[in-house]
């Protein structure tokens, strides 16, 4: 060693570490700003391939920094940077096609099958409500006004068979049908979401709502039946009802499932049970929204254009068969395929 050799600059290991790596961090930060402003679509192939490299380098810097540096500002910066990068690298970047496939072919029918028990319970509640509504109205017709207070006009107790027939006719001349369909869809989705969410209150409001839907159904069937219009009314109801009521029954089943897992979590912790229940029912509920959109179209457009009772019943039955086949057979695991 000679005297004129420059003395090494006195620096900490953590400072050298930072100087060697900070350009990578800044590059990642710039890329993240770009993602947040313009999305991943604006990236070139090179930039896209480079992003995971920068991310891994930042992650390794963070884990290194935590064991060699006490510079709080640097560690804080790296944590925030890695957190920001993490949500983009492991974020929801599934292709749209895959999302559709995994929902329609796998997730939705499987979720509905898993909810089978609760759906049967919800269906039984609806049927019990319908029978009760019928029997109570048949016993004392004033119950009808109690159950359906808003129906005094065209569909009241005093309405003649002719009045009633008008309400279940079609309206093929009217052009403003699609708004009606959209209205029915939005209204029913709202009701279904409430029915589902109220399951979190130990399922009691879900039960009450489903029972009440059944009772009004039974009461109206009774009203039309006693005027000799039972078959026509059934046809009027069936064309969309098989889809709509099926959807509402699934929504109620989802509510019951949440209530059951909340009260009886089984072998797992309550937190874990709620999480499983939430994911399962969430998938089924997105399906319910799809079903109600179909039902809204059948009710708002199909029912108004088609007035023949046999055609109406036929469409309703076909829809029911399609839903039944879809839920029972689509997305079954092939034998030998793992869970």
């Amino acid at each position: 060693m000679t005297d004129d050799a420059p003395k090494p600059v006195l620096r900490l290991k953590s400072q050298k570490f930072r100087e060697a790596r900070q350009s990578d961090w800044r590059a990642l930060s710039t890329q993240l700003d770009k993602v947040e402003r313009r999305g991943l679509g604006s990236f070139s192939i090179d930039e896209l391939l480079n992003l995971p490299l920068l991310y891994r380098s930042a992650m390794s810097s963070l884990s290194m920094a935590q064991s060699i540096s006490l510079d709080r500002n640097m560690i804080t910066y790296l944590q925030a940077l890695c957190v920001r990068a993490y949500v983009y690298v492991y974020g929801p970047q599934t292709r749209f096609k895959d999302v559709l496939y995994s929902f329609f072919v796998l997730g939705w029918p499987r979720a509905v099958r898993k909810l089978g028990g609760e759906i049967v319970l919800a269906f039984a509640t609806l049927v019990a409500g319908a029978i009760a509504g019928w029997l109570m109205c048949a016993h004392d017709s004033t119950w009808y006004n109690v159950f359906l207070p808003g129906e005094q006009g065209s569909r009241g107790l005093d309405s003649s068979a002719e009045d009633l027939r008008k309400t279940i006719g079609g309206n093929p001349e009217n052009h403003a049908l699609s708004p009606f369909a959209v209205f029915l869809m939005t209204h029913n989705v709202g009701v279904a979401i409430s029915t589902f969410a109220f399951g979190a209150v130990f399922g009691l409001p879900t039960f009450a709502l489903t029972l009440y839907t059944g009772i009004t159904l039974g009461a109206m069937v009774w009203l039309f039946a006693q005027q000799g219009l039972g078959f026509e009314f059934a046809a009027w109801l069936t064309i969309h009802g098989t889809t709509e009521l099926f959807a509402l029954v699934i929504a109620a089943g989802c509510g019951f499932h949440i209530a059951r897992r909340l009260m009886f979590p089984g072998d797992v912790t309550r937190k874990q049970a709620l999480r499983e229940a939430g994911t399962l029912t969430g998938t089924a509920m997105i399906g319910v929204a799809v079903m109600l959109t179909v039902a809204g179209c059948l009710e708002g457009i199909g029912r108004q254009m088609i007035t023949d009772p046999f055609a109406r019943i036929g469409i309703g039955a076909v829809m029911l068969t399609i839903w039944g086949l879809y839920y029972t057979s689509v997305g079954r695991r092939k034998p030998g395929e793992g869970a």
Binding site: Y90, F103, I193, S194, F196, A197, G282, M285
Partner: peptide
């Protein structure tokens, strides 16, 4: 909660529960 993918079902459920 576990850092995994945020699924549409989870988003639906968490917002449907706003109702209650």
């Amino acid at each position: 909660h576990d850092g995994g993918r945020l699924t549409p079902a989870a988003v639906f459920t968490r917002n449907a529960l706003r109702e209650v």
